[in-house]
Design a protein around this nucleic acid. Structure first.
Lengths: 142, 142
DNA sequence: GGAACTGTATTATACGACTGATACGGTTTG
DNA sequence: CAAACCGTATCAGTCGTATAATACAGTTCC
């Protein structure tokens, strides 16, 4: 069962995109593996305090990407082979890093300055793993 | 007159926030100075191909932040002293970098790997300043 | 077989973002 | 003064996101 322990619901951006990103990042990190059970739509909606339809939208789009497999009536599972993982990993890196680099360049920051700045924030988040905001888990029924 | 030459309209996220971010980044970079003329609502809306109300919303919120001053009937100007610039600069760095670091950590990337990756994207955007997407300018009437 | 789950689909409602059109009054400039 | 700008305000309409309340069919398991 994949865990939503580290998921933090942000108030910026669509919820269904946040969920999709969280799962993609988990796959890229190797925390989420192949043929792993996904929380049911209803269970996750209760856990996160959002509407089941929102979860369904996220899962449905992930299925269209070939990351999730759903059979009507049965549980849903991840579906990621080695090639898919590498593809997701590269795409996640690209989209996240590209945006940051563009922002830094736009502000006239050199690469060295930017990396030094990143180091500062890296250490800031080192101590506590929670940060601010709520934490959710899908590990209760294990 | 502040220039929108380097502004690229993204399809992700509210337009009024993109405009606010662009101006904040310009101030942080020192490209936009104090008492500088801002394109009129109508002119910028025509330039970017968006509704004048969207520009008004962005400008209005920037005015509430104390970055822009508007007098009914007259042109609008920036209003940033040294303290304001430093405040904006720090806040922009924080919000952009914090998000990237969080994403990288979530994907299990070390600080060294992340910086090496950033370097890769830094060089990629070095050659052409345009990237993909449209470019707009507010310098025509100079 | 039947209860308790699953995924899937439908309808209605609400809100924010954005558009389009239009209007009013103040400022600037020839 | 008067035209041409400017900021400001309002209204109606579209679209995407999210909610709420159901409903139905397939599966898992005792």
């Amino acid at each position: 069962m994949i865990s939503f322990e580290r998921f933090v619901l942000e108030d910026s951006g669509p919820v269904y995109l946040q969920i999709m990103r969280y799962i993609r990042q988990g796959i890229a990190a190797g925390v989420i593996g192949d043929r792993e059970e996904v929380p049911s739509r209803r269970a996750l909606s209760t856990l996160l305090g959002v509407n089941p339809n929102t979860i369904q939208k996220a899962y449905h789009m992930l299925e269209e990407e070939g990351i999730i497999q759903s059979r009507s009536g049965a549980k849903s599972y991840t579906c990621v082979d080695a090639g898919t993982i590498e593809r997701i990993r590269r795409e996640q890196f690209r989209s996240e890093t590209c945006a940051w680099v563009k922002a830094m360049r736009q502000m006239g920051v050199s690469r060295e300055e930017a990396c030094a700045l990143a180091e500062e924030f890296w250490e800031a988040g080192e101590a506590d793993g929670t940060g601010d905001g709520n934490r959710f888990t899908a590990e209760s029924g294990r």
